[in-house]
Amino acid sequence: MKNKNRVVMDAEGIDRSLTRIAYEILEKNKGLDDLVLIGIRTGGIYLANRLQRKIAAIEGIEAPSGILDVTLYRDDLQKTNKKPRIGKTDIAFSLDDRKVVLVDDVLFTGRTIRAAMDALIDFGRPRLIQLAVLIDRGHRELPIRADFVGKNLPSSLWEDVSVKLTEKDGVDEVVIEMDSEE
């Protein structure tokens, strides 16, 4: 059984990437007007919170943030009998005419983002939706791309990219894990 784990990003790397993404979000949107951050459960929640703090440190104003659980919009629910647990969605403001920045940890097939966009549209009609991810690992199955990327990480399909965050894992690092079955 092979089990080679490679750390491809450490705490400092993650922090620098998020700082750059915070500046890029402000640059692209020319400030904070109507901007909201929506974190996709679960990794995206913590990254959205960190971006919110970084943006507040730069601009002195806090952008509203919300939490989105996309499970009910997934396209593979009918294919499985193992029903994933549903987490709480919490978006306490209208999305009408807002600029929404969706935040997730890893961009992979794009199916999660497709589900997230469907969910957002049910909450209103945002002026635009942008996507910020810490890692883009490729292998898209849908025509989706990110506006803000922390790190492009070419990966093979039998590898697993795992973003560990202090808030949930006690440590900040991005790890490539070999699938031990292969």
Partner: peptide, 9 residues
């Protein structure tokens, strides 16, 4: 509590 009280599940 949403305005559109429906999910596609």
């Amino acid at each position: 509590t949403r305005e559109i009280k429906k999910v596609p599940t």
